[in-house]
Every structure is written in structure tokens, then in C-alpha cells.
């Protein structure tokens, strides 16, 4: 097996041009599972760990740029977590300490599982996914990036370099239901992002559709239901959270599988959404504040 270790994005892109069948390796927490199970038999590997650009994150004005090689463990650390508490919340739910140390946001996007934990947050944040390929660099809105279960809009030879999201200006929440209390694939998950600067609400849903979904109607409803003028966002009426949950559930299109049923997923996504909004709009109390 050929292994290439590029140090720049350009090198990585040209390495791919040289070996079109090569697979990109980031943390390997998805890729190696596939190799060990015999689903994938790569003949060449381009290992991205040494590409410095991918491992960086920075604040660019009111935008946060997170390199594709940033691990979950780093998303949990202070600077990054403060700029994007939603991503930190999602990172905290991922796997085990070992997986969080190795797994990256770029790998989560590359796999594009409807259950990938950062994906609903990126949807809720209206993220742009930054790409580099033989034809240069471009970026795509998150919702155009995922095209189906484990399918993306990446063109041949293209790779993810970073995601670009607004720096947090309000509460962000991510909640995930699985069938055990840790190390579990989401059965349903919700991200709710309150953007105080723009007075808008973003919603992203995981595991309730072929791709991570937005819930635009619910998001508009919530933005109207929130009183932005107070110290932090509060709900005009507490019951609005319930209605929000219903609208989110209506926006989902879950299926039955061996992990759960469509009916449960729909119920859970509504409950989670209701709780996200309720908590995001609650006066800060102890540990429960986002």
C-alpha cells in the first residue's frame, strides 16, 4: 500500500491527482473500521495529519474557521468551545476519549453519515464547507454539501479544508438520543442555535432523514417567539417551546431501522428541540446553562 504524507493542501491535492484511487486518511476512526471490516480495500492512502493548514482554527472577524483536521478533543477546549459552544456540545457526545482524540470534523463531513454529530450543528449554524481541488478552492453551503446518506457534493479529487461558521452570539444547544448513555450512534439529535446578532434561530436535525435536515419553519417560528431585547433571549410565552418541538418533529422524515422506529425518532426529535429552546431561553441556572 502506498502512503503519502503531504504537508500542504496543494501537495495533498496533487497527490490525489497522481493517485485517483487513493483514500484520504484523517483520524481513521471511520476509515479503519471500514478497512478492518473488509468493506474497503485501499491500495493507496493520503494521510492528512501533517497538513498544517487543516489542523488550525481561527477567528476571522465574526466568523470562525475550523480546519478539517481539528479533533473533537480540541473542539472541547476553551477557545474553540467559547466561539462555538454548539460544536463543543456535539463533540462531547462523540464516542469515547480515544475517538475524540483521533476523530476530526473533516472526517465527520467526509463520512457524511446522517448520524454524524457535528453535522446538525453545522446545518443550524448555516456553515460553509470550504473545499480544495484540482480546479482550485470553493465553498459550499452545508446543506448542499451532503447529498444523501454517506454521499457528498465533493467533486473527484476534491477535499475538505475547513468549515466556516459565525462566532457564537447567543446560546447554542446540541442534544442527542441514543440507546445507551455513551459511545452510541444517534437515534435522533437536534442542534438549536440562537444568533443574538442577527436575531435569528438555526435548527439542524440528525438521524431523522437521509441527510442532516434544517427545519426552516420551526426556525422562523422560534425567532419570532424569542424576545431578543432582554438581557439574553427569553421566550415571550413558555408554551412556544412546545410548539417549536412540534414544528421540528414535522420537519423530520425518519425511518424505521434496527436502531429505532420512525415514530420514536419523530417523538424524540420534538422533545429534544423543545428542551433545547426551553433551556436556551431560560435564565442561566447552574450547570444546565448552555
Amino acid at each position: 500500500m502506498d502512503v503519502t504524507l503531504p504537508t500542504t493542501v496543494d501537495e495533498a491535492v496533487s497527490a490525489r491527482a497522481d493517485a485517483p484511487d487513493a483514500v484520504l486518511l484523517a483520524g481513521g476512526t471511520d476509515l479503519m473500521v471500514a478497512v478492518n471490516a473488509g468493506w474497503l480495500n485501499p491500495t493507496a492512502v493520503i494521510a492528512l495529519r501533517s497538513v498544517a493548514e487543516l489542523g488550525q482554527w481561527r477567528v476571522d472577524g465574526d466568523q470562525l474557521v475550523v480546519g478539517a483536521g481539528v479533533t473533537y478533543e480540541r473542539m472541547l477546549r476553551e477557545g474553540l468551545a467559547a466561539s462555538s459552544p454548539g460544536l463543543a456540545d456535539a463533540a462531547r457526545t462523540v464516542g469515547s476519549p480515544q475517538i475524540r482524540s483521533a476523530g476530526t470534523i473533516g472526517g465527520n463531513l467526509g463520512t457524511a453519515s446522517p448520524a454524524g454529530d457535528t453535522l446538525p450543528v453545522l446545518v443550524a449554524l448555516g456553515a460553509m464547507v470550504e473545499l480544495a481541488g484540482p480546479d482550485g478552492r470553493r465553498s459550499l453551503p452545508m446543506q448542499e454539501f451532503t447529498t444523501g446518506p454517506k454521499r457528498t457534493a465533493l467533486a473527484p479529487g476534491e477535499m475538505i479544508t475547513a468549515v466556516r461558521v459565525p462566532v457564537a452570539s447567543g446560546p447554542q444547544q446540541y442534544r442527542k438520543v441514543g440507546v445507551r448513555n455513551a459511545m452510541v450512534i444517534a437515534v435522533a439529535s437536534v442542534a438549536v442555535v440562537l444568533d443574538g446578532d442577527r436575531r435569528s434561530v438555526g435548527v439542524g436535525l440528525g438521524s431523522v432523514g437521509p441527510v442532516p435536515l434544517a427545519a426552516p419553519e420551526a426556525a422562523v417560528f422560534a425567532a419570532d417567539a424569542v424576545d431578543w431585547s432582554a438581557g439574553g433571549p427569553v421566550l415571550h410565552e413558555v408554551d412556544a417551546a412546545v410548539r417549536f418541538g412540534e414544528l421540528v418533529a414535522a420537519a423530520s422524515s425518519p425511518i424505521d431501522d434496527h436502531r429505532s422506529s420512525a415514530a420514536y425518532r419523530r417523538l424524540a426529535i420534538g422533545v429534544l428541540a423543545e428542551r433545547c429552546l426551553r433551556t436556551a431561553c431560560a435564565p442561566a441556572v447552574g450547570e444546565d446553562a448552555a
Partner: peptide, 19 residues
């Protein structure tokens, strides 16, 4: 416990104390 990780849902932080 006041730790949300210790509640039902664990690391998924699904559940507030009042739930």
C-alpha cells in the same frame, strides 16, 4: 447529581434535572 452526564441520556445531554 447536578452533572448532566449522570442523568438518563448521559453524554447525549438529553435530559434536564426537571425531566
Amino acid at each position: 447529581s447536578s452533572d448532566p452526564m449522570a442523568r438518563p441520556g448521559g453524554a447525549g445531554r438529553t435530559t434536564d434535572a426537571t425531566d
